[in-house]
Amino acid sequence: MIRTPQLTDSRIRGSRGRALMSHLLQNLPNTIKQAFGTPLIRLTHASSPGRFRLLFRGSPGEQQEPMSDQDGTSRSRSANDTIDALADRLDAARRKHLKPDEKPTSAMALGFKYATEFTVATLVGAALGFGIDKLVGTSPWGLLAGLVLGLCAGVREIILSAQKGMEQGQTAISSEDPEQEQ
């Protein structure tokens, strides 16, 4: 993957070590990207600008020296690669900046929610029925009806939130556009 420079080249023969170093440094980001699939060295705002510059700046002495034909094309190719890699990272940074990654609702939270809602809805229904019993004097029937209604309300609540949760899960999986508000 690393194109080893031709050491017999007259350009390099003079300062072999430096040229090799600068070549390796120039190609290092691409090499890492090819090896690991992701650029390990990222441009985060001001995390380490010095290091970044070190990796991408060609050594300045090189430009003035005469270069052979073959080396010129290979260098322009590597410069193109560098620009492309930078463009990829720029796109990634822009996407990340525009759309912050959303966390799905935690399963534990949903579990707590369902369990209490069902129970409490039943209890509230029963309490309402009991209250009506006290007010009107229809002793067992209000409590009974309230209990049944409360149960229904609890079931309905769970079904509705489950539907909503599934919709959200699906949109979280399928959607790419950030405007997903109802």
């Binding site: 930078l86 822009r94 900046h97």
Partner: peptide, 13 residues
Amino acid sequence: HITDDLDKASRMQ
């Protein structure tokens, strides 16, 4: 700032 920087970066690119 980041938007500016991104714009600048794409311009420079």
